[in-house]
Design a protein around this nucleic acid. Structure first.
Lengths: 203, 203
DNA sequence: CGCGCGATTGAGTAATTTCAAATCTAGTGG
DNA sequence: CCACTAGATTTGAAATTACTCAATCGCGCG
């Protein structure tokens, strides 16, 4: 293997993707972005690979470049629920375990081969201290994330499973073509049979 | 009415409450806190008062000092859902309309006589620019808020209404004694009759 | 062809909703 | 102190909705 070459094509595009993500919110000079980049690690993950086991320390959050990850929760009846998907350009982690640096109550795995940037909390904090703009970035990003969760809660309160199904496709475009419907049902909180029946009748 | 007197007893305690809230996360000098305080407005709101109407611009977020507020959503069937309560020391607003400075899709009203500090987005941003520590505060606060919403979503996915009922009482201690059960049912996403029946049988 | 996975369908069961009525409770005025 | 009332809570019964479990269908692939 050659020494890592920053002119490698996929590295360039990965870096650009991260830079674009950040620069949608704040502006960075080349030097600043180079500094930011030092704090991330690029990961190549395989389909079915478990990135975080329940009970382990949640060391990283991930910015997905390509592929598809998910966060799941095993409930007290042994039933698995999908808490979140992570598609291209989305951030994913067990937020609570990550921010409190505690044992994960959730599991993260890959539904496809995935490349992602990972970031530890320590690196994140170091980066924000040195470059406060990044704190602005994370605040904005977290706020947007919060709004999305609030929408999802509103869906649970006021929409039936079919409307929720259409809502998820706005958040995760193309997801229906990439995962079995049973997983979408798990995310929506209904059985796969119910989801199947609803999509028949109601549009 | 006399000129406002900053030695007024309740003003002191209100200010202390806000300061304590902020200093749980960052440290402030007296001058810094005085500066922060300038950006807030103290409000006295009456029971049943509507603070934000659907369709209006969401100008403020509120830090509740005393009393109780709530955020509600009217769905397409004319049914009202409670999205959030705001008790003492909690922050409350229509987050989406506030952060995007757009028309509110939610309504905010008071379930009790309430005193609160209000903060406009413009004031908030001015404050954060002048005092970046406040951005750290809001990031931390928003992150904690996010974790709470994620827990609530997990409740919808993996718990029945009765377990969700016990969960809400952790988030809003004493709420059951302050509002009709029908409101709690609305927050949980079940009918009041179902909530009543569940609490009978299941503890 | 036959296997395996995902999606659908059917039938019976369980949970939740709806609507109506009954009960309970706190506050009010006589 | 009691009666009355309005709101809150509970209960009942029927209707609806969703779930479970089993069986079937569809399809890609070795």
């Amino acid at each position: 293997m050659l020494a890592k070459n920053i002119t490698d094509q996929s590295t360039i595009t990965s870096n650009d993707r991260l830079r674009k993500e950040i620069e949608e919110i704040i502006c960075l000079s080349d030097q600043e972005f180079a500094f930011v980049l030092e704090h991330f690690q690029k990961r190549h993950l395989k389909k079915h690979q478990i990135v975080l086991h329940e009970g382990d320390l949640a060391q990283h959050e991930y910015f997905v470049l390509d592929g598809l990850m998910r966060v799941t929760k095993l409930d007290s009846n042994g039933k698995e629920h999908i808490v979140q998907f992570g598609m291209e350009n989305q951030w994913i982690t067990d937020s609570e375990a990550y921010h409190k640096q505690s044992a994960a109550s959730l599991t993260i795995d890959c539904l496809e081969n995935t490349t992602a940037f990972s970031l530890t909390l320590a690196q994140r904090e170091k980066m924000c201290q040195a470059l406060p703009k990044m704190e602005t970035f994370f605040l904005k990003k977290t706020t947007l994330n919060l709004l999305a969760l609030q929408k999802r809660i509103l869906c649970f309160l006021s929409s039936n499973a079919n409307d929720r199904y259409h809502h998820i496709l706005l958040v995760y475009p193309g997801l229906a073509q990439r995962v079995p419907k049973a997983m979408i049902a798990s995310y929506l909180g209904v059985s796969r049979e119910t989801l199947s029946r609803l999509s028949k009748t109601n549009a």
